[in-house]
């Protein structure tokens, strides 16, 4: 439990589960949830490298804070898009949002 490899493998597993969710689900909200999982995997990686190899502990923590801020902004935008799309289509199935299809 106290090695860099353990944490990196946990993060890789979490990232893969999130990626599978993004590829498989059809609901926009479910895809958003999966993207949050992938962002968290990246945060775990940052903090693991900070603990085991990086010269300065503050750097990795600052970048994890940056990821959290970006995630909050992303969720706000995604909520607006979901509401807007729901007004147009009366559904959040992304397969129905194909107005630009040739």
């Amino acid at each position: 439990m106290n090695s860099l490899t353990t944490y990196l493998l946990i993060a890789a597993m979490l990232f893969t589960i999130g990626l599978f969710g993004v590829l498989r689900r059809r609901s926009l909200i479910a895809m958003l949830i999966s993207i949050e999982l992938m962002l968290n995997a990246a945060s775990i990686n940052f903090l693991a490298f900070t603990k085991f190899v990086s010269p300065d502990p503050a750097t990795g923590q600052i970048y994890v804070l940056l990821i959290m801020g970006v995630a909050a902004a992303e969720v706000a935008i995604a909520l607006a898009i979901i509401i807007s799309l729901y007004r147009w289509l009366r559904t959040i199935d992304i397969e129905r949002a194909d107005r630009l299809r040739g």
Partner: peptide, 24 residues
Amino acid sequence: LAFMELLIYVGAITITITFAIMLS
């Protein structure tokens, strides 16, 4: 960062996603 994770992710982002579910 553990407390920030609880505060921002569990506290704010999950609630926002719940709002998205309620509104669509």
